[in-house]
Write a protein that binds this DNA or RNA. Sequence first.
RNA 1: GCCGGGUUAGCUCAGCUGGUAGAGCAACCGCCUUGUAAGCGGUAGGUCGUCGGUUCGAGUCCGACACCCGGCACCA
Length: 675
Amino acid sequence: MFKISLPDGSVREVPAGTTPADVALAIGPGLAKAALAARIDGELRDINRPFERDSQLALVTSRDEKDALELVRHDYAHVLAEAVQSLFPDTQITFGPSTDDGFYYDFAPKDRAFTEEDLPAIEAEMRRIIARDEPLVREVWSREDLIARWQAEGESFKAEWAAELPDAEELTVYRAGRGEDAWLDMCRGPHLASTGKLDPQAFKLTRVSGAYWRGDQNNAMLSRIYGTGWLNRKQLDQHLTRLEEAAKRDHRRIGQEMDLFHLQSEAQGSVFWHAKGFLLWRALEAYMRRRLDAAGYAEVKTPQLMDARQWEQSGHWGKYRENMFVVPDEVPHAPEDGEADDAPVLSGQADLMALKPMNCPAHVLIFRQGIKSYRELPIRMAEFGCCHRNEPHGALHGIMRVRQFTQDDAHIFVREDQLIAEVRAFCELLDSVYRDLGFEDYAVKLALRPDKRFGSDAMWDKAEAELREAVLQSNLSQAIKDKFEELPGEGAFYAPKLEFHLTDAIGRTWQVGTIQSDRVLPERLDATYVGEDGQKHRPVMLHRAILGTFERFIGILIEHHAGRFPLWLAPVQAVAATIVSDADGYAAEVVSALTAAGLRAEADTRNEKINYKVREHSLAHVPYLLVLGKREAEERTVALRPLGEGAKQEVLSLAAAIERLRREATPPDLRKPLD
RNA sequence: GCCGGGUUAGCUCAGCUGGUAGAGCAACCGCCUUGUAAGCGGUAGGUCGUCGGUUCGAGUCCGACACCCGGCACCA
């Protein structure tokens, strides 16, 4: 007999062989029907898996949404795999987990990868499997039997996986269906009791893609099918609506609609900033420059091209050479008379220069000019540095991932005793900047030592602990600290990093800010300062950025605000739109007055109806329209109309309107407390 | 770089099984002097991503390349 404790504090004695489903039925048929799985001593388990000892039991129903979604999505993945093998019998199965909004499964097809055209048929087969209500039964297998089974079935990926699972782990298989036709997959579980527990209308296969076996590009390319899965149809519909709404916030789309920037193949991966986009950039850059000035940074500017030997010495050449743009240090040879037009203009023998992929070596070179005293540290050296990296083609993405970008970069040279306080101060500066820009919520991660790295283990132990300590000591909100996570193996080759991530419109997260504590580069580039003891010491170098790159950060800003920027960032802050041509002269006056007050304003005196102008400027997300008719021109007032459908407007004197806008357009760091 | 999909007018897109291109919006011209999210009429605009092939004939079929999109891998 086992003693089973329930959440209400009651205890039931049950004989061996009893399952959570039995307990649920004993409590009531309603609960038995609703129960999807069980939490046994905190662990999620199959509802039909018998108790093994005295246990705490909590039955999981769809009300426990997080658990329920996880279970359902995992089951959808299994049903997907069963459906694919039923339609494409020669396809090997590999692995298929749940994701944040659904599931995927990786297959090794016999001859061709799946395409989106295959999805409707697979969905239909999945619905048939759900309709058959196949029981999902857990079985424990021996490793030998399991490997033999997979080999017999031609499932080489599963066989490989089975052979490598740790000895301590029980090897389990789930049998879907009945009798000879049952379909098997190796899986840790847990699963629902049967496929019929899934809602056949609450999932959708969304896309196909390639994916490497075990995430390693040296392995086979598998064919992955993604789906989204929910507890019911309503949730699915809501999710699909969210995706549609998110697509409207895509920075590439808004960038075009608002005339902010464009990209074209002649400069792939580099942004053509249009006038309006660059106004936004300038507002952001001016803000960052003020914040850095106030925080004790000194701004520098360093060369775009440096001798390749410099990159060898810093260690970047060895690791990143193929991602650097390299140019020969040579004057091209001018064609001479009688020489073929296609004669080489470069000798191929010249020394190499490289476009800088980062600013840090140049900053060390500035640091090394003259002798530095311990009294001068910390030295905070900032640069809005324009860098080039030859990113893999498949990595490029709008303006979020580009080949030419400008960082709000800085390197802080500190003594060991100053390090934690500097990191902490950085975290607090970053938090303040993100809040000013409208981001209350972001993720902080600590990327730990990678396999291939410079420096001793002792150095890494110390550096990782310092960053961890600094972030936890800082004044970041508890909500952000609660989400803090560590990423093994993700650090840079010379230093661990704190990473600060923001989320884009469709839920992809992007690293923006970072800080890295580096003891390798000062060593390799021989940076020293004179200590109190008169001896030479190595400074620690903190590599740090808050926005990361202007390109990516502006992309995120666009999506976060859906193009409706706060007034201080909006490229065009106000448009003076006339109703009748009699107001044209007054409109010009209004725009001059706004411009003189430091506001970014334009006049729209086109021969169009006011309805048309309102609609057009609203779609362009212009924050304020100053509507000017005959009345306003005569009374020297403006009808101030904020962005928004059916927005309530106010008629103000021109001076009052300007004062209102000027005040609202003041960047957050320049606002006086009383404002 | 890898897998899959795509590229037609300034923008969004249609163009079935091959028979020398079409819509809406935008642009331009004209009318309307207009009061808060599209006033009306007209005109013009494309060597269908590039190169090559099949064919009497290619936007359409085949191949290569370029770029874009969705993932994977990468991200100093």
